[in-house]
Amino acid sequence: MAKSQLNPGRPHLIEFPTHGELAIGYLAVVQMQQEIPFEVKRIFWTYFTPQSVIRGRHAHHATSMVLIAVHGRIEVHTEMLDGYKSSFLLDRPDIGVFLPPLTWHTMQYSHDAVQVVLTDTEYTSEDYIRSYEEFEELRRI
Score class of each variant (00 low, 15 high):
residue 48 F to C: 06
residue 30 V to S: 05
residue 26 Y to T: 08
residue 22 L to R: 12
residue 106 T to F: 03
residue 83 G to F: 09
residue 114 V to S: 03
residue 41 K to W: 05
residue 68 I to A: 01
residue 91 D to L: 02
residue 100 P to L: 10
residue 71 H to R: 15
residue 50 P to Y: 05
residue 8 P to I: 12
residue 120 D to C: 11
residue 113 A to S: 04
residue 106 T to M: 09
residue 48 F to R: 13
residue 121 T to S: 07
residue 9 G to T: 14
residue 122 E to P: 08
residue 94 D to G: 11
residue 140 R to M: 13
residue 46 T to S: 13
residue 106 T to G: 01
residue 104 W to C: 00
residue 110 S to M: 09
residue 8 P to M: 05
residue 70 V to P: 01
residue 99 L to Q: 00
residue 101 P to H: 05
residue 46 T to M: 05
residue 135 F to V: 05
residue 105 H to Y: 15
residue 24 I to T: 15
residue 71 H to V: 12
residue 85 K to Y: 01
residue 16 F to K: 00
residue 140 R to I: 05
residue 79 E to H: 08
residue 73 R to G: 02
residue 130 R to T: 15
residue 115 Q to I: 04
residue 55 R to D: 02
residue 66 V to I: 14
residue 140 R to F: 08
residue 14 I to K: 00
residue 85 K to A: 06
residue 111 H to G: 06
residue 120 D to P: 06
residue 85 K to S: 11
residue 84 Y to N: 11
residue 117 V to W: 06
residue 111 H to N: 14
residue 78 T to M: 06
residue 40 V to D: 01
residue 63 T to G: 00
residue 43 I to W: 00
residue 39 E to W: 04
residue 19 H to V: 15
residue 117 V to D: 04
residue 73 R to E: 13
residue 51 Q to P: 15
residue 63 T to L: 07
residue 41 K to V: 04
residue 42 R to A: 09
residue 36 I to V: 15
residue 112 D to I: 07
residue 22 L to N: 08
residue 37 P to F: 01
residue 82 D to P: 03
residue 120 D to M: 04
residue 140 R to G: 06
residue 118 L to Y: 05
residue 128 Y to C: 05
residue 10 R to W: 08
residue 112 D to P: 01
residue 7 N to C: 08
residue 141 I to K: 14
residue 10 R to K: 13
residue 62 A to L: 14
residue 65 M to C: 11
residue 37 P to Y: 00
residue 19 H to G: 06
residue 124 T to V: 13
residue 130 R to Q: 09
residue 76 V to F: 07
residue 98 F to Q: 02
residue 76 V to H: 02
residue 124 T to P: 03
residue 119 T to P: 00
residue 9 G to R: 13
residue 3 K to V: 14
residue 31 Q to H: 12
residue 61 H to F: 13
residue 3 K to L: 13
residue 140 R to N: 10
residue 105 H to K: 08
residue 65 M to L: 14
residue 45 W to M: 11
residue 107 M to T: 07
residue 101 P to A: 11
residue 20 G to M: 01
residue 131 S to W: 03
residue 139 R to M: 03
residue 28 A to T: 10
residue 88 F to S: 01
residue 128 Y to E: 03
residue 65 M to K: 15
residue 102 L to R: 11
residue 137 E to F: 07
residue 141 I to M: 12
residue 89 L to S: 08
residue 129 I to Q: 02
